[in-house]
Simulated assay, not measured.
Amino acid sequence: MMPVCRNCGNEWPWKDTQRLSIRRDRGAVCQFCGEKQFQSRKSMRKVSLFHLLPSLVLPFALVMDVSIVSGLALLFTAEAVFLSAFPWMVELTNQEEPIW
């Protein structure tokens, strides 16, 4: 399920949610109501833990004696899976919360 704006209750489109993964500031403005929304603490923790998986692929591939090219291909595939799954892991809140 895509994230829902806590102010107006509208579901954010995939494209707008994906932009949260590349923004420097943590908030984004809802296109429906114009209010700034932030990732919830729970969502940030879930995303950060899930994002560790792609970074563990390359060392695992090296230990398993997989070629560097195959290891890099696995790394890029894992990162692509993370980026495409990111919007479904996001929960929004009206207030900025610290991650820990």
Rank of each mutant, 00 (worst) to 15 (best):
C8T: 06
C8W: 01
G9T: 10
G9D: 04
G9C: 05
G9Y: 05
E11H: 08
W12M: 02
P13H: 08
P13L: 04
P13G: 05
P13N: 07
P13E: 08
W14A: 00
W14I: 00
W14N: 00
W14K: 03
K15F: 11
K15E: 08
K15L: 11
K15G: 01
D16A: 09
T17G: 02
T17K: 01
Q18L: 12
Q18T: 12
Q18M: 12
Q18R: 13
Q18P: 00
R19T: 10
R19F: 01
R19P: 00
L20D: 00
S21R: 04
S21G: 08
S21A: 12
I22Y: 07
R23H: 07
R23F: 04
R23V: 01
R23A: 06
R23N: 07
R24D: 11
R24S: 13
R24W: 14
D25P: 09
R26F: 07
R26G: 07
R26H: 10
G27F: 00
G27C: 01
A28H: 06
V29K: 14
V29L: 10
V29T: 15
V29D: 15
V29F: 12
C30G: 06
C30N: 05
C30P: 06
Q31D: 15
Q31M: 14
Q31T: 15
Q31N: 15
F32L: 10
F32W: 14
F32E: 11
C33I: 15
C33Y: 14
C33K: 12
G34W: 05
G34L: 04
G34E: 06
G34Q: 06
E35C: 02
K36L: 08
K36V: 02
K36I: 02
Q37H: 13
Q37E: 10
F38Q: 05
F38E: 03
F38N: 03
Q39C: 05
Q39Y: 03
Q39K: 12
S40R: 02
S40Y: 07
R41P: 03
R41F: 13
R41L: 06
R41M: 08
R41D: 05
R41A: 03
R41E: 09
R41I: 05
K42N: 11
K42G: 08
S43M: 00
M44Q: 09
R45Y: 13
V47S: 07
V47I: 15
S48C: 02
S48D: 04
L49A: 03
L49G: 03
L49T: 02
L49V: 04
F50V: 09
H51E: 11
H51W: 15
H51A: 13
H51T: 10
H51Y: 15
L52C: 12
L52V: 09
L52P: 09
L52A: 11
L53H: 07
L53V: 15
L53A: 13
P54A: 08
S55A: 12
S55T: 14
L56S: 04
L56F: 12
L56P: 00
V57M: 14
V57W: 12
V57I: 15
V57K: 09
V57A: 11
L58Q: 07
P59A: 09
P59G: 10
F60V: 14
F60T: 15
A61K: 06
A61Y: 09
A61C: 14
A61F: 10
L62A: 15
L62S: 15
